[in-house]
């Protein structure tokens, strides 16, 4: 084998990561790779350790054992380089309530040491449909707007890798679809996305690869098609296709662009 295929360095590499909180062993040897420019979903129920994994990768927690690297940098040895490569959108929209939307973006742009923080903020406000609300205090924003702003803040400085920890938890269906569109657009531009979710349909819609984290270990990891093969072949059954409540809700609320795009995806 002289011509072995050249595999690109993974954007995220996780090897035998363990982490305990006192007695509780949250991660018990986790391994996975994420290829650059792909969307990787870490699926698991509440308390499965998804957030802990994301915190380790974003240098907020150090693992008890094992190693991890992001964008080629080891999270323990080169935490600073990792932080330059990533952006974290946590479980709760981490926005400053007292500042306006624009001020939030400028704040992050300044902390990322960009040359023109104002321009970066205005570009993202336009891209996320927030220009009109730019000067309003974030405490007056809706949940969806807050989440959009939160994600916009994560895009400042164009990090190579983005962690999204349960990005759609607590959002209404329309806002959820908006967030999905943003995530898909990110991957199209070449950003690597690691997303955690407890919603199966979210992983199914978005992810190139899905890993299931259960009791501190990855118990399955593959594309949707590969995961489907883990079960016995599909049976053919005839079922009347009823609209889902989501279809009905979106049709009645009537935001046409969004309904169309949700159908595209499903």
């Amino acid at each position: 084998m002289t011509n072995a295929p050249i595999t690109p360095e993974p954007a995220i590499r996780v090897r035998a990561i363990e982490k305990s909180y006192k007695e509780l062993r949250v991660l018990r040897g986790v391994d996975f790779d994420v290829e650059p420019g792909t969307i990787f979903a870490l699926l698991g129920s509440n308390g499965a350790g998804k957030t802990t994994m994301v915190k380790i990768l974003s240098t907020l927690l150090s693992p008890d054992a094992g190693s991890a690297s992001v964008n080629g940098f080891d999270v323990a040895a080169h935490a600073e380089r990792v932080r330059e490569s990533i952006s974290l959108t946590g479980q709760f929209a981490a926005v400053d309530e007292i500042l306006s939307g624009r001020e939030n973006l400028v704040l992050v742009a300044r902390l990322r040491h960009l040359k023109d923080p104002g321009q970066a903020a205005d570009d993202l406000l336009a891209r996320f449909n927030l220009s009109e609300a730019a000067s309003r205090k974030v405490s007056a924003y809706s949940g969806g707007m807050r989440r959009r702003l939160d994600i916009a803040m994560s895009l400042i400085g164009q990090p190579e890798v983005i962690f999204l920890d349960e990005p759609t938890t607590g959002l209404d269906p329309e806002a959820r679809i908006e967030v999905w569109q943003v995530i898909q657009e990110l991957a199209k531009r070449g950003t690597t996305v690691l997303l955690t979710t407890q919603y199966l349909d979210e992983a199914e819609q978005l992810a190139d690869r899905i890993a299931i984290l259960h009791q501190g270990r990855i118990i399955a990891n593959g594309t949707l098609a590969e995961l489907k093969q883990l079960l016995p072949p599909a049976k053919v059954e005839y079922v009347e296709k009823q609209p889902t409540l989501e279809d009905i809700f979106l049709a009645l609320v009537g935001n046409e662009g969004k309904v169309a795009s949700s159908k595209e995806q499903s």
Binding site: K55, S58, T59, L60, E80, R83, E84, I86, S87, L88, G90, Q91, F92, A93, A94, V95, D96, E97, V108, L111, R112, H113, M153
Partner: peptide
Amino acid sequence: KSGIFERFHSMPI
């Protein structure tokens, strides 16, 4: 509590 602390800490500051 709001998570903005973690946001700052995951940034190169």
